[in-house]
Nucleic acid binder design. Structure first.
Lengths: 238, 238
DNA sequence: AATAATTACTTGTCAATACAAGTTTTTTTG
DNA sequence: CAAAAAAACTTGTATTGACAAGTAATTATT
């Protein structure tokens, strides 16, 4: 007796609460409604509600305390794993804008790719895109993404403006980033990158090459990111 | 009716299976016994068994496939935190040497410290040291470490040559690094750093400011690391 | 013999219930 | 009034039962 679609109830509640947290309806430190209250509110039983909350806790959106409740926690990894921290204050998602430089296109994988590829990936072809990400109208990231064309129908037709690639993948294809690896170095930017990031000559750039593992077997997400760390620094946990 | 201790059953099964995986009783790619078999084997009901498996899946020890089973996966779990990867091949610990520039001394915490300090830390004073780390005789890292003087007797008298600070803390004080956070940026090095890292003029440097959490309540480890990423890049997992 | 349909087995979802174990609030007691 | 005890919350653990959905092996069919 599913109401509408075949999305599990615990998943629906997870999405609802997650949205409420990220949109600020619950502030950091707030107590979520108790499990029994959520049962009444959304017409589920406690195991189902608990499954939703377990997911939220696992993804760092809440902390559970026995006898007390579920405390809201704002995960710092805003832009999936790669978040920015200003020198003075943290930056919300509001001021972050994305400009597409190269729309998603299906190409052949480049020779000499930065990571080793599986046969399946090579055969499937590569979804390629370039994006410039601005914080308060100042360009911060230049992001080149590579993605194997595995189980992602019509992705090149979607609108990416002001939506993170992660969000698109999560909402429409149920792809979750589980982890990954990265190489980091400080470089002198190429003229092209310097132009996009509006850098003065001699200003160094942070370069990240990352490979992200997803919940989908065989699907990885690669990006080469150039980052102006003049005003902001890249923040990460480990 | 707990048999012995107050450790939950699902936790016990988690530990058992986790040990079996890490000890190689199950190899990578193997199928774990089915949930119903585990129920019979360990005298639990399916929700309990599923809770154990959910934990293992969450921690990357297995992958679950509906209709198929739980497939064993060996997590990469590299706690190296800061490892170096050359452009061609990975580098072992053998060629890594450490030179002490400033021996461990007890000082006052600097004003305007890179991270917020607790009152306990401020009161306890700061153990300070500077080290240069060389890979194949080429200087790669310049590491400035800060450490609150909490439960670390006689640490300033110890020999640090060719031993990582982590090793000293682990062996003599049972301090384990549990995780942490870091800020990363690309900078133009100061003359002092440039001299130590033997950099050519104009060559950028990777700067990491990190705060590490330990198993000791209230004890954190801070470092400011300058890194020559000309030949090697910094490698990390997330 | 190759293909299609069936069956058996797997994990996924969900309900209803019970009690244990922490935390907070209220009430009782001195 | 203050402290202790009780009650009323909270989340944690565990059982039992049922059906859905995906996968693999078996059987029947052509």
């Amino acid at each position: 007796m599913n109401s509408g679609a075949s999305i599990p109830q615990h998943r629906k509640l997870y999405e609802i609460l997650r949205r409420h947290i990220t949109e600020g309806i619950y502030a950091e430190g707030d107590l979520l409604p108790s499990e029994n209250e959520l049962c009444r509110l959304y017409g589920m039983t406690r195991p189902t509600v608990r499954q939703s909350l377990a997911g939220l806790a696992n993804d760092g959106y809440i902390r559970k305390h026995q006898g007390k409740g579920s405390i809201v926690q704002l995960p710092p990894r805003d832009i999936g794993i790669l978040s920015v921290s200003g020198t003075t204050s943290a930056v919300g998602n509001r001021n972050l804008k994305t400009r597409i430089i190269v729309k998603p296109v299906l190409i052949q994988w480049p020779g000499e790719f930065m990571f080793a590829l599986t046969e399946l990936e090579k055969e499937s072809g590569c979804i390629y895109m370039e994006r410039l990400r601005l914080l308060d109208a100042a360009p911060i990231f230049y992001d080149i993404s590579y993605l194997a064309n595995i189980g992602l129908p019509r992705i090149t037709a979607r609108k990416f403006e002001n939506k993170s690639l992660f969000e698109i993948l999560r909402e429409h294809y149920k792809v979750e980033i589980k982890g990954g690896e990265q190489r980091i170095r400080a470089i002198s930017p190429s003229p092209r990158i310097r132009k996009f990031l509006k850098l003065e000559s001699g200003q160094p750039v942070l370069h990240l090459e990352r490979r992200m593992v997803t919940n989908i077997e065989g699907l990885f997400l690669y990006s080469s990111i150039f980052c102006n760390t003049g005003k902001y620094s890249v923040f990460g946990r480990f």
